[in-house]
Simulated scan of single mutants.
Amino acid sequence: MLGATAAQAQLRDPTRPPEQWMQGGDAEPAGGPVLQSVLLSPKRKIAVISGQTVALGERYGEATLVRLTESEAVLRTGSESQTLKLFPSIGKRPASDSRNRHPDKSEMRR
């Protein structure tokens, strides 16, 4: 039983934010602000950027949150804009022809 407890102590909670976000302070992760979450409802439009909750139209540092979608936030500082993506490593690609993706049942029986 003791071995199981030791193994459980080493497991990391997959829902826990990265350690650099948990340390607090005003330091941003290397590379600038990070879009962590988006909340869109008829009454509220909110982004969590590097641990800070920012409503549409509010300021994040020197920038203003000017646009918010399900997967992106746009910050504007003067005439410069910066787009933050919720899932930066996931890119959109056009879907291939559906006939090539799903063989018909006669081909599956061969």
Rank of each mutant, 00 (worst) to 15 (best):
L11T: 06
M1E: 13
T69F: 12
V74Q: 12
F87Q: 04
L68Y: 10
G57W: 02
Q82W: 00
S98Q: 09
K43S: 05
M22A: 03
R99I: 00
V66G: 15
M108K: 05
G31N: 05
A30K: 03
A4Q: 09
R59C: 12
K92L: 09
R101Y: 05
S96K: 06
P88H: 14
A95C: 13
G31Q: 14
P103I: 01
L86W: 10
E28V: 06
P42Y: 15
Q52K: 15
Q8Y: 08
A9L: 15
L39C: 03
A30F: 03
L68E: 00
T64I: 03
V54G: 14
D97S: 02
S71C: 07
E72Q: 11
K105F: 08
G24F: 11
L86A: 07
R44N: 14
G51I: 06
P42L: 14
E62F: 14
L65C: 01
I49D: 01
D13I: 13
K43T: 12
N100P: 01
R109C: 01
D97A: 00
Q36S: 15
S81V: 00
R16L: 06
Y60C: 10
P88Y: 08
E28W: 15
P42I: 10
Q23P: 06
R99M: 02
P94Q: 00
G3E: 14
M22H: 09
R16D: 06
Q10T: 09
E58F: 11
S96Q: 08
R12P: 05
R16N: 03
L39M: 06
V38H: 07
I46E: 00
S50E: 00
S106F: 15
E58N: 15
A7T: 13
S81K: 14
K105W: 09
K45G: 10
L56E: 00
S50F: 03
T64L: 02
R101C: 09
K92Q: 12
S96M: 10
A9Y: 12
E107Q: 13
K45V: 03
S50Q: 02
T69N: 07
R101D: 02
G78V: 01
L68V: 05
L2T: 10
Q52Y: 10
E107D: 12
Y60N: 02
V66E: 03
K92V: 04
V74E: 04
D13F: 11
N100E: 01
K85M: 08
S50A: 13
A6R: 07
A9S: 15
P29Q: 11
V54L: 03
V66F: 07
E28G: 14
L40E: 01
P14E: 05
M108P: 02
A95D: 03
Q52R: 13
M108F: 05
R12V: 05
L39I: 10
P18G: 09
K105D: 08
Q23H: 06
L56S: 01
K92T: 09
K85C: 09
S41L: 06
Q23V: 08
G57R: 04
Q82F: 00
A63V: 04
L84D: 01
A55G: 11
T83R: 08
A27V: 10
A47V: 00
R93Y: 11
Q8G: 06
I49Y: 07
V66Q: 06
L39N: 14
I90W: 14
S106K: 13
